[in-house]
Design a protein around this nucleic acid. Sequence first.
RNA 1: GCCACCGUAGCUCAGCAGGUGGAGCGCCGCCUUGGUAAGGCGGAGGUCGCGGGUUCGACUCCCGCCGGUGGCUCCA
Length: 620
Amino acid sequence: MTCAIPSMRLLLLHASRFRFEPTKRLEIGEDWEGGPREFREALVVFTTVEKGDEANQEALVEKAAGEIAKQVETVKAERVVLYPYAHLSSELSDPATALKVLRALEGRLREMGLEVHRAPFGWYKAFSVEVKGHPLSELSKSIKAEGEAVPKALVAEKKAVSHWFILTPNGDLVPIEEFDFTAHKDLKAFAAYEMKKERRVTKEPAHVRLMKRHEIADYEPASDPGNLRYPPKGRLMKSLIEEYVEEELQRYGAMPSETPVMYDMGHPTLKSYLNRFPARQYVVESEGRRLFLRFAACFGQFMLLADSTITYRMLPLRLYEIAKYAFRREQRGELAGLRRLRAFTMPDMHTLARDESQAIEEFLRQTALSRKVLEALGIRRYVTALRITRDFYERHREDFVVPFARLIGEPILVEMWDERFFYFVTKFEFNYVEASGKAAALSTVQIDVENAERYGITYVDENGVRRYPVILHCSVSGAVERVIYALLEEAERRGKGMFPTWLSPTQVRLIPLRDDMLEEALAIARKLRNRGFRADVDDRDMTVQKKVREAEMEWVPYIVVYGPKERESGILPVRVREEGKIIQMGLEDLIERLERETRGFPRRPNALPILLSRRPRFSR
RNA sequence: GCCACCGUAGCUCAGCAGGUGGAGCGCCGCCUUGGUAAGGCGGAGGUCGCGGGUUCGACUCCCGCCGGUGGCUCCA
């Protein structure tokens, strides 16, 4: 990954006399008329534009102009002569860019009230110069645009003025200072977190230790920070979550798709979209082109929808992708375990709606779907935020805000903006609130009113007229990694950790009492496996006590010790984690229980060998 | 990106006013064939994050970098 910073070289000479004469035009040369020119008392600026990020030229010009103006002031020069001089660098930008930058610089200096002259670009020129002898008369500068390009939306966000309220379940909007948080501790923590009024001192989040101990995820020092690796158990859990979310989306009526992970930064549509999305990007170079890695699946889906023929009969039209990965180059200090990554898996659905009213209807349905998904995943501790522009709030209080409040049935944190800074007029999120008071957004739905036009996405209405749809963005569960984060934090909070049965890497652990029971234990495990469950056998040379202990520490929901008594009776002593006791049952009873607990969820085979003695340890 | 702290065996950590390092767990071997949260004995395993500097000598002191964590900033 590279992120070339645009740069410029300047050689500043304070000349009592400077004369140049264009002699021969090159192919790349600009139009130019007239013969030699001569200037007195001038700051002559020999300059070269070097290779770099076109997106950030403005900052470059601004900085160069500042340097030049400063020098003019210092040496008291009467005028500026810009002189394109390619020989200052071996890393030249392309001529078109160089000329553009040069012209912009000329214009900017003029705006600053300076007398500016310029020699032609792309010509052989003869020149002579008499440089003054004072100490500051000669100066060489290399100018770089500050850091990397920062999307305008990130800047806009800083300027956005927020008004905070609590929306009660019956639809009343209460100023946040007047709300009684007594029965709503998580919401209070979340509001404080969002409004930055209060920050508790915290330690490393609990899930980091757990994700390593359970071999779900770990840091990979050989990659970029925030790009984690997932050993078999982690991959299994991610697959299951992805599959489950995908099934829900398809049941909801969304169509699957897959789109590229990288896009041309020079593409005009994407260029303007980049500036509307507050995220930093990874940039990859390929054959001289600069490509950014997607930070969501919007681009690909929008480009696909823009090339599609769509009529009003097909609306609402829903398309999704489990975007793997979405990349966001978050700042180093913001990265934290599975809570905040630079590469993550995002279920991203887009819905084309006929108009605002259909969009609102869909928004409410997708809110309900998001809630169903989070609960199925085993996440119950979350609070709701609604962000909305004042205009949209006022126009849709009765048909949107109040029904939304009723649907949620809990107090909602509302952030209201006087103006629309982003591409959406409203969005909600379900935010998981950690024990430490930190919050992380999971599900979200947004109503986007500007990208249909930007991407040229249209549908044909009843009268044969092309119209722009309203677009909804929806991540029904939030990032898959973040779902696991929430499950781990939740487990820590409860004390006795466990995953929902359908997500447990091992659902049944068999412990043969002696070596001569191993074959029969294996036979039971295979039976379970054939019925679609994940069972394994602890064949290691250890005491039963220790095997039980380790199975408990792995959060295995069902543990069975198999010995002569079981062989005799056919009854299994099943240690049920959730209930913390041993329940006697037949194999079929156990299977029935597993069936019940995993109904409606995807199934996948063991991620690891069935025999524990054959398993590597992946934890560092 | 800024500030602070941390980086020693696979893991968790101890250690050294500067003289080439330890424990527990894990791993391997042997004994133990066991009844629901740690059985016993033995063994192997380390460029002390990386690169410079100071020093006769650096895991230890200094500088830089990389990685992690916390805070700030940030988080459609």
